[in-house]
Amino acid sequence: MIIPFYTPFEKYLEKSEDCYLYDTEGKKYIDFESGVWCANLGHNHPKINHVIKNQLKKSIHQGYLFRNRQAENLSEKIAQKTELKNGKSVFLSSGSEAVNLAITLAKQITGRDKILTTDISYLSAYGDGQNSQKNNNLIVIPFNNSYAIQNIDFSQIAALVIETGGASLGIIKFPDFQFIQKLEKQAKQNGVIVIANEVTTGMGRTGKWFGFQHYNVLPDMVTTGKALGNGYPVSAVSVSKEIAKEFDDAPFCYAQSHQNDPLGCAVALEVFRIMEEENHVEKGALTGVFFKKELEKVAKNHSGTIKEIRARGMMLALESQKEINSEKIHSQLFDNGFVTGNKFNTLRFMPPLTLPQKDVNQLIKSIKETLQLLK
């Protein structure tokens, strides 16, 4: 039996393919969650599977005494896409690992303990980034509240962790441009290391390669995961040339078993190659615009039920009015063959970037029918 940390529906998954999931009874579902927001290129991608099979024949895992071409090539690719020129990366397994390591590095460099973020952020399932009353070093300020910035003692803060799309809390909200600009400026003026947490918002999810690129800021570190491996567990901490030099001058030891594994790095390299060659960031952005417009049409005709539509790229939310039970809508959509997210009266849509517009139309039709049942 499985420890019930979350509650699934009473269906067993049999197969995943592109944007579609199939249960053991043969029923087809359109996946508007990309797994756990990982499969930006769709599930079971044949080109990625081919790379996995080839790499399996060579090397899956390595120790600490050899260099790794896959890791080095991937580091160069991430430096290019994040604009961290001549930066360096290390590769791990999960987003939580990456965020916690980035925070640890910031503490090591600055000699400070506090971490600053906003109340729409979810940094980590554990450790220094965990949202917990026991995490006394985490300072959380209200989302988009510029006045709160004035009351921060930046001299105690090691890192500002920016998350530019609050998905993990289920609400999907996007910070204002001026808020992020002001926060980043104050942080850098006070010697605080700026970390862009791109575990969820990276790899084309928001219509750009990385979410921070909507804000004209350049972080000192970038953490990636989830879609970096398109479902395969690989994550990264990428740092600027200046941060990397700090560890040349004062070496820091960090070692875990699955660090820079060639299989995960080979997968991530293929993900980048496919996304570049097939223009999935641009295609996903266009589908996102279409999707948002269709949701706004529904909201206009159901203002008594729908409070707000929020969207950026392929990261969309439909928030219901407070008196509406969105769990009923969520459950009905699942019964109708649509996998969506739901939390705090907000339906969440984060489908693969490969999603055809016809599948958006099917979902919109099902939402309309479901809303009619609520009347």
Score class of each variant (00 low, 15 high):
Lys328Thr: 15
Gly165Thr: 09
Ala79Leu: 02
Phe252Trp: 14
Ala125Phe: 14
Phe174Gly: 11
Thr340Phe: 10
Lys185Ile: 14
Asn279Lys: 09
Leu74Lys: 06
Ala227Cys: 12
Gly111Phe: 09
Met275Thr: 07
Ser96Cys: 07
Gln332His: 12
Thr110Asn: 11
Ser75Pro: 02
Gly26Leu: 02
Phe334Met: 15
Val360Glu: 06
Leu269Asn: 09
Thr7Ser: 14
Gly63Leu: 12
Ile180Lys: 03
Leu347Phe: 04
Ala255His: 08
Gly264Gln: 07
Phe290Leu: 07
Gln70Val: 08
Ile149Trp: 09
Gly207Val: 00
Val36Gln: 07
Leu318Met: 15
Lys182Val: 08
Ile60Pro: 02
Glu76Pro: 00
Ser146Trp: 09
Tyr12Ile: 06
Asn151Ser: 15
Asn279Cys: 06
Glu369Gly: 15
Phe210Glu: 08
Pro219Gly: 03
Lys53Thr: 14
Asn44Arg: 04
Met203Ala: 08
Lys53Asp: 15
Lys188Asp: 10
Asn86Val: 04
Phe174Ala: 09
Ala106Asp: 03
Thr104His: 12
Asn145Trp: 03
Tyr64Leu: 11
Phe154Gln: 01
Gly207Cys: 01
Ala187Lys: 02
Gln156Glu: 14
His43Tyr: 14
Lys81Asp: 08
Thr224Val: 12
Asp153Trp: 12
Cys38Glu: 13
Glu282Lys: 15
Val140Lys: 13
Cys253Gly: 11
Gly191Trp: 07
Gln332Thr: 10
Gly95Cys: 06
Leu74Met: 10
Gly225Glu: 07
Gln70Cys: 13
Thr287Gln: 00
Ala71Pro: 01
Leu116Ser: 04
Gly225Ala: 15
Lys292Asn: 05
Asn260Glu: 04
Lys297Met: 02
Glu17Arg: 09
Gln108Arg: 15
Ile157Gln: 03
Lys134Phe: 09
Leu105Arg: 14
Ala39Ser: 10
Phe212Glu: 04
Arg348Gly: 12
Gly87Ser: 06
Asp249Cys: 14
Leu269Ala: 05
Gly166Ala: 05
Glu72Pro: 00
Pro8Ile: 08
Asn145Arg: 10
Thr346Val: 10
Leu374Asp: 00
Gln213Leu: 10
Lys182Glu: 14
Ser96Pro: 03
Phe66Ser: 13
Leu101Val: 14
Glu282Met: 13
Glu83Pro: 03
Ile364Arg: 11
Asn44Phe: 08
Asn137Val: 00
Ile141Cys: 08
Ala106Phe: 01
Lys292Met: 02
Gly225Asn: 13
Ile52Ser: 00
Ile162Asn: 05
His61Ile: 11
Phe154Asn: 03
Asn197Met: 01
Gly95Val: 03
Met315His: 02
Ser331Asp: 08
Asn345Asp: 13
Gly95Leu: 07
Val271His: 06
Leu374Glu: 11
Pro142Thr: 02
Lys15Ser: 10
Asn336Phe: 15
Tyr20Asn: 05
Asp31Gln: 06
Ala98Glu: 07
Asn144His: 01
Thr346Trp: 05
Leu371Ala: 08
Lys81Ser: 05
Gly341Gln: 09
Ile309Leu: 06
Val237Met: 11
Glu276Phe: 14
Asp248Phe: 13
Ile48Val: 12
Val237Arg: 06
Pro262Cys: 08
Lys208Met: 13
Cys38Tyr: 04
Gly337Cys: 07
